[in-house]
Design a protein around this nucleic acid. Structure first.
Lengths: 274, 274
DNA sequence: AAATCTGTTACGGATTACGTAACGACTTTC
DNA sequence: GAAAGTCGTTACGTAATCCGTAACAGATTT
């Protein structure tokens, strides 16, 4: 009534017809999500800009829906059992590989380097997805390849974040060969390994140059799930000398950014990871 | 207009005033939760008893809220990123999960068996955390799985300690099938169930062997909160024959020890529990 | 090419939600 | 100890919303 319809069509999106109350109610849920614990009615009201009476009505219905609970009667509000159920259902559908695909393509386009994704299979980090550059001198990053633990960027980032019990035997095996790749990389004892991995943890990123594949350089970053455990790693791969491995380099920053976003979409709480 | 207000007050609960659309919309979310994957509009419409046009409007708003996503335009509907956010936020409020993680890892390292944690959600014991062994023959204990009440170690320990009013219907349902898992386990009447649960209560631990999952054996122990009510259960899982289920076995003792510590950290008074 | 699906949108009438303000219950203040 | 300030909750009338029916465009099938 107050506003001309044509003006609305210009400035606001037509926004295919929906149910307004659904959208008006979500700020209430958002407020509860962002708060670490229970909230009072007035706190919710101020956080959402609603009048207390209005917020109360939404809360009453959310309680009946199970999305919200209230401590006794008259107490503070918090997320309810259905919120948990909803989240569990959502988590079960999320597949790292699915959501990683688009992010990998983006990163590849942004940087112009080959980007690949590895999961931890029983025998080590296994390359599962590749976003290649159209470069002629294409790097042979092949699907299904199992990378070494101590001498590849993928292996190193998994070694840095996986439970040591899982990696113990593999580390031992790679250290055992006095002329192996690990030894060539200057890794001879567990202390050497631990020192290296600590650096990668601090940086939340691993580096490998001219090791498992001659002339190759790579950066890898971890992807965590809702349990804050590493579930995958994403790497930027190129030729030695053509990829800046510094922590402040553009590839490093963008890679870290992409990995962080993916972790967040998986429900990780990155501020709680060592 | 159609119905006398006084009649309504008698038969329906006054139900403190809320927002009807919020409650009318939840069946849409429920349908998506219960489905294992994406659903078409018509599938949602039939599942909720709504007309397609109506369901579409709710979905449009849920999409804008982030609770639902749609595969491209015109595709099927599924839970969205905000559903995940909601769930992660809800999970974070559950103290047990925070403190259980480290204890589970410890127990896994100590025993060499897979350890998992379940909470009671609306539909039964739901697996929320897993600490896996690096074994190649990894058991497929999957996040979010809802376990049966009478034929899983998780279900049994919850059944033993939860208020019977909560479990009554589920027990009845599982007993109803004369060829179901419960019947195969020798459970036919409520008396059978009560006898079994009494044993688990006495031992403060439940057992399941070769039941809901063929070839699997598991021990589960309850975790109580400051109200001395069961809030979670922790289980040691392995293959049949590879896990000693005796009360005096090392796995049983260590599991009981871990569960006791967790209960104490939650403020339980274990000596007052039947 | 007609027919049946799909997902999506339009329209009028009945229902619903919003804003304001009041209500008890409790705590703080003077 | 009374008054004034919280808090969560509820009532009321008007304006805006939602519901049901039905049509629309697009894709696939018959």
């Amino acid at each position: 009534m107050a506003v001309d319809v044509n003006e609305l069509d210009i400035f606001e999106r037509p926004a295919s017809t929906g149910i307004q109350s659904i959208e008006n109610g979500t700020p209430v849920l958002r407020a509860l999500v962002q708060a670490k614990g229970p909230l009072s009615l007035t706190a919710i009201a101020t956080a959402t800009g609603m009048a207390p009476g209005k917020a109360h009505k939404y809360l009453a219905s959310y309680i009946r829906a199970g999305l919200v609970t209230q401590n006794e009667s008259g107490g503070r509000y918090d997320l309810g059992p259905f919120a948990l159920e909803l989240g569990v259902a959502a988590m079960r559908r999320i597949d790292v590989m699915e959501i990683a695909q688009a992010a990998m393509d983006e990163l590849r386009n942004l940087l112009g380097y080959t980007v690949s994704l590895a999961l931890w299979a029983n025998h080590g980090p296994t390359i599962m997805r590749i976003a290649e550059t159209p470069d002629i001198m294409s790097l042979t990053v092949r699907f299904g390849t199992v990378m070494p633990l101590l001498t590849s960027s993928f292996g190193r980032i998994f070694a840095a974040y996986l439970d040591r019990r899982i990696t113990q035997n593999m580390i031992q095996a790679e250290l055992a060969d006095p002329k192996g790749l690990a030894a060539q990389a200057g890794l001879k004892t567990f202390a050497d390994v631990e020192k290296m991995l600590a650096q990668f943890r601090a940086r939340r990123m691993s580096v490998a140059e001219n090791l498992s594949t001659p002339g190759r350089a790579a950066l890898a970053a971890p992807i965590f799930d809702h349990n804050n455990r590493i579930v995958a790693a994403i790497a930027v791969v190129s030729m030695q000398g053509r990829l800046d491995l510094d922590a402040d380099s553009r590839p490093a920053r963008e890679l870290a950014n992409t990995a962080r976003k993916l972790s967040q979409r998986l429900g990780a709480a990155l501020d709680q990871i060592p």
